[in-house]
Design a protein around this nucleic acid. Structure first.
Length: 562
RNA sequence: GCGCUCGUAGCUCAGCGGAUAGAGCAACGGACUUCUAAUCCGUCGGUCGCAGGUUCGAAUCCUGCCGGGCGCACCA
């Protein structure tokens, strides 16, 4: 049941009849009543009539029988107060698995690109937001009835693999798995060898020496071998990728993220499509040689010096960068996978990149009418000092270490990890946020534990309650407030999914928990007998269902007890 | 330099064209013989960065300025 939509429906009929055409009823929650509409104010101006007069006419024509009462207030607001009987019936009806929310009428096929860590590295805190936000959106959109194709765009290709594979070969070809046991150490060691090799060319080290001379050069050759399909090199590469995929899946499992191995489609997958990306762009006359590279110059992008900014499709050394891969992936997702909507959950700093990619794709005809691409950007996680969140030593924080600390501090995986996820999802994703253990683990306030606690109390009641829930009767103001909150679920889910803003759902759930806690404090249940007890049990039951469903859509677990 | 983005209560943030700007934290004062007090109730606290403009109405839209962040050709 969607109260707002129901009220808006009834009001828009009245508004249309007064205006002689469709008018957006703009029904919103209000402090002055359950809901309000300011539509008459705007309409009055259009009609050149006094606002209160228009409002009065709309109120008179609105058919709200059995649903709400309406009155004109202030300069011409329409205040709507929902009938208690309608509220009670609405809550009674929330007894199915979907809480009365129907699947969308027109499902889309959505490719949702998120997480995207780099192979051969552990997941870092830098991947946390993309993973958490992306997974919440995946769950939400899927639950609403869309077909969601999760795409974990792994960084499994490119220049760093030269040094990684060469280092791996030095260690004995990766025969022994534990050489990759700690990927962070492995990566660091390779990096160190690469950086410490200052020799300008391979020539001086060509005399098979024990010194590591020429590591850099060998790494470069290794990249060439990888891209040329050299089988021993490919075998090393596969081994490395398999190992890292295993560690990613472990981390996703711990985090409670729905990505599976089948969702892993790394950059390597698109390598054989790159030449045709190039040729199609060329056929359309979009490709421009510049300083040795092949570029597209989408309109409206200027660089530091005011010159047009290129999207570099092929580098001057003949290699392909991420722009080419992103274009290939986009084309593949539309053309082969048949997506009607592309979502990229990637940090805000890449905004320009995605604008350019989308613009070029449109020019190339890879984003036809009816297909949309959207960059779901998000801000950074900051430390208490307001700078990027790092360890004391200045290193990136690994996800494993972060989750360990969360579980230790909360002494419960569900609570610790839920706290991290909730903190990430509770604010506007575009804003940076400060990572603060004490705040996110607080049992009071807008936090995961607060919501989980409300749920645990409900479960506790039902462990003790003998009687069955019964029809809702609203007698206490706290019951009414809770009922109203319960009926706001559908609107919250649609707001969150429609704008790809999970915090709309998170903050709804917090409001619901607050309404429940108020009810819990002032409306005893177990002590009662008869219809009021049954009614309150129903209210508690619906709250529990809504919290459980809502939090599951955000990817947050709920303990039965706390 | 150009572009994008953000500046709301001491702190962390909602609100993004509508009625006296909301939460949480912190501070202060209350509430447990009562379904989990990991809770609740109350008080205190804001010229919504500054200045103009559009509008019946602006934290919300436009312009300028100040301040922070990010981006600006071969790393993704």
């Amino acid at each position: 049941m969607n109260l707002e939509a129901l009220l808006a429906d009834r009001l828009s009929a009245a508004l249309a009849s007064v205006a002689g055409g469709p008018v957006d009823p703009v029904v919103r929650q209000s402090q002055h009543a359950d809901f309000q509409s300011g539509a008459a104010l705007a309409l009055a101006r259009r009609l050149g009539r006094p606002p209160r007069e228009v409002a009065t006419e709309v109120a008179a024509k609105a058919d709200l029988a059995g649903l709400a009462t309406i009155d004109v207030s202030g300069p011409g607001f329409l205040n709507l107060t929902v009938d208690d009987a309608a509220l009670a019936a609405g809550v009674d009806a929330l007894d199915d698995d979907r809480l009365g929310v129907p699947p969308v009428a027109a499902p889309e096929r959505i490719v949702l690109d998120y997480s995207g860590p780099n192979a051969a590295k552990e997941l870092q805190i830098g991947h946390l937001r993309s993973t958490i936000i992306g997974d919440a959106l995946a769950r939400l959109l899927e639950w609403l009835g869309h077909e969601v194709i999760r795409a974990n765009h792994l960084g499994d290709w490119g220049t760093p693999f030269g040094m990684l594979l060469e280092h791996m070969a030095d260690l004995g070809g990766g025969e022994n798995e534990h050489s990759l046991g700690d990927l962070t150490d492995f990566y660091r060691a390779a990096r160190r060898k690469f950086d410490e090799d200052t020799q300008p060319s391979v020539r001086s080290g060509a005399v098979a020496g024990r010194s590591d001379g020429g590591f850099k050069a060998r790494a470069r050759l290794r990249v060439v071998a990888l891209q040329a399909g050299d089988e021993p090199t490919r075998a090393l590469w596969r081994r490395l990728i398999e190992q890292t995929e295993r560690t990613f899946l472990d981390a996703y499992g711990r985090l409670g993220v729905t990505l599976t191995r089948g969702d892993f489609v790394g950059e390597s997958f698109y390598q054989e499509q790159l030449s045709s990306v190039l040729s199609e762009l060329d056929e359309q006359g979009l490709l421009v040689p510049s300083e040795g590279a092949l570029c597209v110059f989408p309109a409206g992008f200027a660089g530091r010096d005011g010159e047009p900014l290129p999207l570099i499709v092929r580098k001057s050394d003949g290699g392909f960068g991420y722009a080419a891969t992103d274009l290939a992936a986009l084309r593949h997702r539309v053309r082969t996978l048949g997506a009607t909507r592309l979502l990229y959950v990637v940090g805000a700093p890449q905004r320009t990149h995605f604008r350019m990619v989308f613009e070029v794709a449109r020019s190339a005809g890879w984003l036809p009418a009816g297909v949309t691409a959207e960059h779901i950007e998000f801000g950074s996680i900051l430390g208490a000092d307001g700078k990027m969140f790092r360890t004391r030593a200045g290193d990136n924080v690994t996800l494993g270490a972060l989750l360990d600390e969360a579980v230790e501090r909360a002494s419960s995986p569900a609570i610790g990890i839920g706290a991290i996820k909730y903190a990430d999802l509770a604010g506007d994703r575009r804003s940076d946020y400060v990572f603060d253990w004490d705040r996110m683990l607080a049992s009071t306030g807008d936090t995961g534990p607060y919501l989980q606690y409300a749920y645990a109390r409900i479960r506790s009641i039902f462990r003790k309650a003998g009687a069955e829930p019964g029809p809702v009767v609203l007698a206490h103001p706290a019951e009414r407030r809770l009922a109203l909150a319960l009926l706001g679920f559908e609107a919250a889910v649609h707001a969150a999914a429609g704008r790809r803003e999970p915090h709309r759902l998170a903050s709804y759930l917090h409001d619901l928990a607050v309404a429940f806690t108020g009810f819990y404090e002032s409306c005893p249940i177990l002590r009662l007998a008869g219809p009021y007890r049954a009614s309150r049990l129903t209210l508690a039951d619906r709250t529990g269902r809504t919290l459980a469903l809502g939090l599951s859509l955000l990817g947050i677990d709920l303990p039965e007890e706390m």
